[in-house]
Every structure is written in structure tokens, then in C-alpha cells.
Amino acid sequence: MALFSLARSHKAARVLPGFNITLGFTLTYLSLIVLIPLSALVFKTFTLTWDQFWAAVTGPRVMASYRLTFGASLIAALVNVVFGLLVAWVLVRYNFFGKKVVDALVDLPFALPTAVAGISLTALLAGNGWVGQYLEPMGIQLAFNPNGVVIALIFIGLPFVVRTVQPVLEDAEKELEEAATCLGATRWQTFSRVIFPSIAPALLTGFAMAFARAIGEYGSVIFIAGNMPMVSEITPLIIIGKLEQYDYAGATAVAVVMLVISFVLLLVINALQAWQRRHTGAPA
């Protein structure tokens, strides 16, 4: 691929061996596993006319699923920003008993299979569950409706915010805070005018990552959502539903919409990370 070719002049200066073989292997493997299969998705949609495609991706049930997927992902990512910042702050700034365990536990949603998270959150929040039994008499239903979707998405998104904000907070210069205090700022002013602006890019990156992950999430959501059409059916489940009816073209059309969205989000996250690197001046 000409896109990845090296300028000749660089080649003479290179000492380390193995460029051709490692790049060649990387590109071959990437093409076989990711690029060619993804292009199959795009080509499959070309078997549909534009009207068919449009009908498939804007049907009422599909539209309802977009509203749920995007709405729930947005709420969950916002909750994660607030609590993720809080957890990162507490882990970086304070000492307390069991801090190392708490720190390790933050990654649980990365390590716990989504299906396990799904059934265990459902067991907790169902009417007879540990938490659900106290909420039900108050008329609060968190399982088998859109609330459950939000809860599951909060669970899987939490580490993204904590793990992007934490290193930035650790590297923050205390001198700036001391200067602000010496100049008469209250602690809240120091936080909102000095600390917050320095972690804002990381916070936004974490938000985008949690949001992107939430949009595509399937395993943890389907157990707790109840999966009622038009009410609590997420977009990935629409794809599965169409597949089960052998509507491959329809499933592909919705999948292409999701693929485009995730690609846009990936570019946004990359841009945010580049901004963050410029902002902190450190290679992150």
C-alpha cells in the first residue's frame, strides 16, 4: 500500500531491522481480521436500494431504539463523568483504608464478562433482589425498563472516566494550587478555576469513551432491559432481531449506521486525546 510507504531518505538512516516484516504482518493481519470483514458490511448494503436502506434504518421500532440507545448512553456517560471524577479525585488526593483494593476494583467492569454483569445487576434490581425489594414499595422500578439500561451502561462506562482522569490528576502541579491559595482564592475557586480546566480535556475524553462504549454495548443490557419493542429495545438488539428473521440486508443497514457512528466517535476521541496532549504538554 502506497499509503504506508516510507520516504527513501528515511530508509538510509534506519538502524533497527524488522520494519518491513512487522509492518507487512500488521497490515496483512489488520486487513484479514478487520478491514475486509468490515468492508463486507458496507458492500452488503449496496444490495439495497437507497429507499430500502432508508426504510430499514428509519422504521419506527428502529427509531425508538436509537432514542433509547443514545438517550441512555448520554445519561450514563454524564453520571460517569460526575462519579468518575469523584472516584478519581478521592483515589488520587486522599488516603483511606483499603484504597488499593478500591483502586483495583475500578477496573472490574473491564474484567467482568458483560453477560455476568447483566444477570447480576438484574438479580439485584428485580423486585425480589437485594436492592429491588426496598425500591419496589417506593414505586421505583429499575429493572426491565429503560432505567435498567441506564444502570447497566453506568456500570460498564465507569472505568473509562476514572482511568483517563486519574493520571492527569496525579500529574497536576500542586504549585499552581498553592499559588492560587496564596493569592487569596478559596478552595472552591482553586478547584473550579485552576484544577478543573486542567482536567477538563481528560474528562471530556473519558465521557466520549464511555459514551462510545455504551452505544455498542449488548451483553450487560439485554438481561436487565426487558427488551420491549418501542420501549426498552436497544439498537444492537434490533440487529440481532433482524438476523434471527433472516433479514440480513436490514440487519446490515442498521449495523452500517452504528458503524458510521462509532467511527465518528473514534475520530472525536482521537482528536480529544490530541488536544489533551497539547493541553498538558506531555505524551499521554
Binding site: V34, A212, R213, I215, A255, L259, L266, I269
Partner: peptide
């Protein structure tokens, strides 16, 4: 290339399964 390496992270697992069914 680095962005492409990251791509599978942001693709929904369901879409990831679907592409192999289509292949």
C-alpha cells in the same frame, strides 16, 4: 494506522459478529 488498530474497540460487538456472518 494507529486509528485503524483501535477500530475494533469502538465497533459494537454485535456488528463484529455480523461481519463474519456476512463473510
Amino acid at each position: 494506522l494507529t486509528t485503524l488498530v483501535d477500530l475494533p474497540f469502538s465497533v459494537s460487538p454485535v456488528v463484529a459478529g455480523l461481519i463474519y456472518v456476512l463473510m
